[in-house]
Amino acid sequence: MEFRQISAAERTAAMFPLQSYAFLPSPWPEEDEAAYRRRMVFFRTAINFVAEEGGTALAGAAALRMRQNVRGKVHDMAGVASVASHPSARRRGLVRGVLERLLRQARDEGHTVSALYPFRPSFYARFGYVGIPRHRTATFAPEGLDHLVRAELAGEVERLPMTDGFDEWQQLQQRLLGERHGFAVYDETRAAEFRGDKWWMAVARAGGEVVGAVPYRVGSYGGELEAENLLSTGPLGRALLLQFFARHVDQVARVRVKLDADDVPELWGTDFAVTTEAKVDHPRRGGPMVRVLDMPALTGSEAGDGDVTIEIPDDTLTGGLWRLVGEGGRLTVTKGTATPEATLTIGGLSALLYGVLDPTEVVLRGLGTVDGAAEGPLSSLFPRHMPYLCADF
């Protein structure tokens, strides 16, 4: 068995058969392979690994080059995708071998953190990943926002084809990357594929500044308006986009839009009827998972006051003793020398860093042991703070 890194040009021959069999109806028509080959121009910057036997790829995985805000610091992030294996090669540890090499290569190339959408969370938990919230979806009738139609808002919304609205949408995402914990974006190479998507783009502006944007499409007359993530810089941008949706009252019966886990659509109006849900099932709709790849690179993250030494055992990328110090609102991570006050898996440390679990929950989940003296400093260093990944990959 040979494990090797391959280029985007090699993906069609090596990875397309594995991915297509794993994720698409099959047998697949010849035009699917041709379409996949054309798309590889958008994967030129991805890190790709395969396990080959006799010159045939039996397992493969990729890491998309992304960037993510984690507690106020923007990191290079490896977005793991395209994980698949040949049915005859399953249960042989080939995916494990591919992922271990992929994550090490990503770390060596400067990626501090990693994220993925799992087919089975327990499988990726063995690689140090821990779950974070899936985006919410709000579904409502546009007439519920009638009060916004009558409102005089200090701004306007322009409807554009995706091609024309793409650049402003990307600029808004870059702004939010610097502001929102958990927010992630693709590199320019991968993002370029979405410019040609058959979606409308609603761009909200106020005072000449973009304050909101959302891709959307109308399924049918009297049907549903489906929108992607409702991105805005604040309440005005959100209100302008919702007002735009409300003006479809005589065209569609429902609006369905993706939201941050912290959004509360039930407060958008009085007597406003809305269904808000985060549906997670497997293997198709897993909630995202994350992990840390490089401990010292976390220095500079936002943190509360505290000083604690932890041990991360049995992780080839981050294992060892680490001293975590929070002072002046920032975190410093250095090699530890004192007796550890907490022993955490990398999944447990990642859960604290991303703000989804507190020290007690980490212990209850079997992600570590925390001495009583360490619980306070860890809680202070990493207060609960729900991340908004936003990107699907």
Results as ranks from 00 to 15, higher is better:
Ala62Ile: 09
Gln68Ser: 01
Gly72Ser: 03
Val80Arg: 07
Ala57Asn: 00
Gly60Pro: 00
His111Trp: 01
Arg104Asn: 08
Gly72Asp: 01
Ala81Met: 12
Arg92Cys: 08
Gly55Ser: 05
Pro87Ala: 12
Arg96Ala: 15
Gly55Phe: 10
Arg107Phe: 10
Gly110Cys: 06
Glu109Asn: 06
Gly55Arg: 09
Arg101Cys: 12
Arg90Tyr: 09
Ser82Ile: 01
Val70Asn: 00
Arg96Val: 14
Ala57Phe: 03
Ala106Pro: 02
Glu100Leu: 15
His111Tyr: 02
Ser82Met: 15
Ala61Arg: 00
Gly55Met: 08
Ser82Tyr: 10
Arg101Ile: 13
Ala57Thr: 02
Ala81Pro: 10
Gly72Tyr: 00
His75Trp: 11
Val98Glu: 07
Leu64Cys: 10
Arg96Gln: 13
Ser82Asp: 11
His86Asp: 15
Leu103Met: 15
Asp108Cys: 07
Lys73Glu: 02
Val83Tyr: 02
Ala62Asn: 13
Ala81Thr: 15
Gly93Val: 09
Asp76Leu: 08
Arg96Glu: 14
Leu64Gly: 03
Pro87Leu: 12
Ser85Leu: 09
Leu94Gln: 04
Arg104Lys: 15
Arg71Asp: 04
His111Val: 03
Ser88Arg: 12
Val98Ala: 09
Arg65Gly: 00
Asp108Ala: 13
Leu94Gly: 02
Leu103Asp: 06
Ser82His: 10
Arg104Ala: 15
Arg90Ser: 11
Asn69Phe: 04
Gly79Ile: 04
Ser82Gly: 13
Gly72Glu: 00
Lys73Ile: 09
Gly110Lys: 07
Val83Ile: 14
Ala63Thr: 13
Ala81Leu: 08
Ala106Tyr: 01
Arg101Ser: 14
Leu103Val: 12
Val80Ile: 15
Met66Gly: 05
Arg67Phe: 04
Ala59Pro: 03
Thr56Leu: 09
Arg96Lys: 15
Ala89Pro: 11
Asp108Gly: 09
Ala62His: 13
Gly55His: 10
Leu99Gln: 04
His111Ala: 13
Gly97Met: 03
Gln68Phe: 02
Arg107Leu: 12
Leu94Arg: 05
His86Ile: 08
Leu94Pro: 12
